[in-house]
Computed example of a mutant assay.
Amino acid sequence: MGVTWRVGWLDIPVHGVFVGLGVLVASVVFVLEARRRGALGEESLVAVTGALVGGALGMRLSGLVEHLDPRLNPSLAEAWAFGSRSILGGLLGAYVGVLVAKRIIGYRGKTGDLFAPAVALGMAVGRIGCLLTEAPGRPTSLPWGIHAPASTPECPGCLTGQAMHPSFVYEIIFQLAAFGVLLWLRSRITHPGELFVLYVAAYAVFRFLVEFTRANETVWLNLTRPQWFLLVSMVIVGFRLHRGYRHGYYEALVERQRVAS
């Protein structure tokens, strides 16, 4: 059982509370952004539903492919009941869920720009749950290293009292900064979908780098499973960014940088 808060006779799962709050915050930001852009309608609400359903499925079922050897992976029932709660799995599932939902209703409009700031702020809130309940990161001698309770699951450093990287704090800071930058960019990057592409690219690079401070198991060439997933993702997103640059989608931003320099 994970870390819980005792409220009366109820045991409230800490991680689940903050994941729920993150989803709520993201939903509110999405609605506000959709209203600001005049895109709040049946189609955008269907897209949100697809994201929520797909994200939940992705987080639960990502454990099915945790190991290269299929014999080491859980069954479908086990993955659903005790899924790895992978953020990357949830994001991928949400993306697929939006595509499926839009295909079902025949909607071809771009909704990614509505999701980008919502996801960033929602992730910042959700990661507080990870900070309070999971192994912080790898041991470090840096002055801002933190200590976690010895009862923290899968955390050898917690048992020995080692200072560890506050990897989830790094991500919370990144997501809050990304939220602010996305709000600044939304009037400058006007081609539909490009704000979302920029966010995904930035998060992929950040998450690949921050994995070096995380407590995740390395599987090959001293890289973790998320890093191998992110390497493939960064190649795909890199091609997408190059295409956007060639088509002039970021020209206004590039021109501003030239003037500023």
Rank of each mutant, 00 (worst) to 15 (best):
R6Q: 15
V7Q: 06
V7P: 02
V7D: 01
H15R: 08
G16M: 08
G16K: 04
V19D: 00
G20L: 12
G20E: 12
L21P: 02
V25N: 01
A26V: 06
V28G: 07
V31N: 01
A34W: 00
A47W: 00
L52W: 09
G54K: 06
G58A: 04
R60N: 00
L61F: 15
V65A: 12
E66S: 13
H67M: 02
R71L: 13
S75W: 07
A77N: 07
A79N: 10
G93M: 00
G93V: 05
G93Q: 02
V100S: 08
K102D: 11
K102H: 11
R103H: 14
R108A: 11
G112P: 02
L114T: 07
G129N: 03
T133E: 03
T133N: 05
A135W: 02
P136W: 05
P136V: 05
A163M: 11
A163D: 13
V169I: 15
V169R: 11
E171I: 02
F174T: 02
F174N: 00
F179I: 03
G180S: 07
R186Q: 14
S187P: 09
R188C: 06
T190V: 14
T190Y: 09
L195S: 09
V205F: 12
V210Q: 13
T213L: 09
E217P: 05
W220L: 14
L221T: 08
N222F: 13
N222D: 15
T224S: 13
L231I: 13
V232R: 03
E255T: 12
